[in-house]
Nucleic acid binder design. Sequence first.
DNA 1: ACGCCACCTGTCCTCGTGGACAATACAGAA
DNA 2: TTCTGTATTGTCCACGAGGACAGGTGGCGT
Lengths: 208, 208
Amino acid sequence: MTAEPLLLITDDDLLAQRWQDLAPSPLRARGIDGLDAWRAAGHRLVLVDLGCARGGTAPVWTRPAWQRNASGLAILAASSTPDDDEGLAVLNAGASGYCHSHAPADTLRQALDVIASGELWVGRALLSRLLRLVDTRLPRTGLADWATPLTEREREVAQLAAVGDSNLSIALALGITERTVKAHLKAVFEKLDLSDRLQLALRVHGVR
Amino acid sequence: MTAEPLLLITDDDLLAQRWQDLAPSPLRARGIDGLDAWRAAGHRLVLVDLGCARGGTAPVWTRPAWQRNASGLAILAASSTPDDDEGLAVLNAGASGYCHSHAPADTLRQALDVIASGELWVGRALLSRLLRLVDTRLPRTGLADWATPLTEREREVAQLAAVGDSNLSIALALGITERTVKAHLKAVFEKLDLSDRLQLALRVHGVR
DNA sequence: ACGCCACCTGTCCTCGTGGACAATACAGAA
DNA sequence: TTCTGTATTGTCCACGAGGACAGGTGGCGT
């Protein structure tokens, strides 16, 4: 539960006080440059107030310090005036989450837990808007392509293999023998004319 | 922490067993009709396996029992063969979350926590795809992302490995020894915290 | 009843992969 | 000049993957 070291970035003293209890003993920085040192220290979890010097200067997520480190960090971006477009921009810039900076402590803590575990966190409002947007202009084919020649079971096995699961873990997940997994995968490889699971992963995930 | 009563809906006994530890003493139902009684009892939290009678019949989320109750419940829909379109459909049908039915227990528990608190849960893979779909300008971030901590040579090797080349063919392509390729890849795995070339391929190609 | 197919399992065997342990050469920085 | 980082190569080893055999069950349609 947010046991990981947390870095708070805001130049708003009141906000810093509100955030103080989110983790055992969070560190405080006023500028985004603290990111470099934070990452160098081997830490990942960051809560940054987008209100930091917003007026006038370029948005925080376009600064060098952000660009350099966003990839390796789990950054929860918080805004006191949440706005869907800002959320999209900051998420696309590598942040792991976007929320209201004055959200309840429980909500913030949960969001931090989620991004600390490697997932993404997007609030109800923005997320449901995303869903509505995508729903209107439905994506393209998707599944029917690689999955069509496969049986149900082969699809399941292929799906798991394509995200890097080993034969054994697939077997345990599906309650069958490792040998059987191999048999299914062999059929998958033949049907899709693939050489190994890496090629399968590329095919399943639409690479090329 | 998922203290709320939880209803498991699946006709897969193995899955039910895997899910048994998600909450103190979860209830089990084999069909979606249990939803009515569950809501009548004043409960909200549900984990439903979309594999329930999928073949042939209409998708679970179009059945009457679902339509009647989805709004008042916090439903986490799980699929053994996750597919973006299915995810979108089920979320638009009122589910609060969509995930892989064989996801690690910790992940499932976290997802349940999130939807129990009234938020929505969408896995990293689907969510990042949503973001990409909505915001069409995304190229720069993806490129320098995984490559930043790597040296020039490591990047070259990683690039080739990520499209399925064997160590030997990479060696031939770069005019070095297979052993050297291994050394570079070892460094790549360490720097990017990856276990093998399949994970590398997924990272390089922006999956998750 | 017979054949087809999906699903499941077993034992070998070969090979690529990734890690451990070790070493050389060369660049630029302190 | 020493030191650190990059690039290079070597041997040995354990493990998983995939192929090549060779089966077993149950459903389903002709």
